Amino acid sequence: MDRRRILVVEDEKALADAIAARLHSEGFDVDLASSGPAAVETVARTNPDLVVLDVMLPGFDGLEVCRRIQSRPEGPVAVLMLTARSDETDQLVGLGVGADDYMSKPFSMRTLVARVHALLRRVERHPAPTPTVVHEFDDVRVDEHARRVFRDGDEVHLTRTEFDLLLFLARRPGAAFARDRLLSDVWGWSRDDSMTSVPSRTVDSHVKALRRKLGSDVVRTVHGVGYAFRARG
């Protein structure tokens, strides 16, 4: 099996070198970039399997990098975004431009590696071709095969992770799922990845992004349990 290639985009050299060394020790090929323009150029040249992307960069920031690399004709690339701030608005903006996950600095290398492995497991799933499956709930339509979502007949553009989360819930309307279950089944986390190190706000932020795009009534909170797709009307 070919070694997976990861691009680390970080302008703090000591941190970039530390991340690269740890990922090398895990068996990955690693490239480095220290600015927004260099990141976009390196993605085009190396076509990495995953990008570890800092938000604050010279040239242009990580959000703009994410916008550009996710709109490539080759298709989106998995992005784990790093931010020095834990502000929820920043996290939602990152998810909105196509990041699959985010981590707030400071973080442990063990947690970073676990996130990388989990994200690669999820994006490397290749389900066998299936006939078109469409989930329809009143004014919401989820096309599973085409990975498209419509509300009131208008298409709503979701990131890869937002769609995966919505699809998981839409396949089981009315059923409530705890955050740990969603982290396991949607994000690909296993017990071996020390799931307790993953903040539950990862799920919460994606749910808020879905509500912002589709309306607050599509995914409901089940207090004491987690989240559920609304039952059929």
Rank of each mutant, 00 (worst) to 15 (best):
F60C: 04
V142S: 04
L63R: 03
P106N: 03
L119M: 13
D152E: 13
V156Q: 04
T83L: 01
V65D: 00
S104N: 11
L92Y: 01
R67K: 09
T89W: 12
R151Y: 07
L80G: 01
E124P: 04
H135C: 12
S104M: 08
V156D: 03
H126Q: 14
S108R: 07
E74L: 12
T130Y: 14
T161V: 11
L120D: 03
L158H: 02
T159F: 07
G153D: 02
H157L: 14
A146S: 15
A114P: 09
S86A: 15
C66M: 05
D139T: 13
D100N: 13
V156F: 08
R147D: 07
R122I: 12
G62N: 00
V93L: 15
F137G: 04
R148V: 12
M109W: 01
G75W: 02
V156I: 11
D139K: 10
E144T: 14
R122E: 10
A118C: 10
L63T: 03
V113C: 09
P131M: 06
A118P: 06
C66E: 01
Q70L: 03
D143N: 13
F107L: 06
P106I: 02
V77N: 00
D143Y: 05
L57I: 00
M103R: 08
H117D: 11
A114E: 09
R125Q: 13
E155I: 11
V142W: 00
R160K: 10
E136N: 10
R147L: 13
R72Y: 03
E124I: 07
Q91N: 12
V123F: 04
D87H: 10
H145F: 15
G59R: 02
A114I: 07
H126W: 15
F150L: 09
T83C: 06
V133C: 13
H145E: 14
P127L: 09
A84D: 08
M109V: 05
Q91W: 08
T83Y: 03
V116D: 01
T132R: 15
R72L: 12
S108E: 10
T89A: 14
V149T: 09
G96K: 02
V149K: 00
S108D: 11
L120I: 07
L120R: 04
R85C: 08
L112W: 03
V79E: 00
R151D: 03
D61R: 10
L158N: 00
R122V: 12
K105C: 03
M81H: 01
D152T: 12
I69L: 08
V149F: 08
P129W: 06
A128M: 11
G75F: 02
C66Q: 04
R115H: 14
T130E: 15
R115D: 13
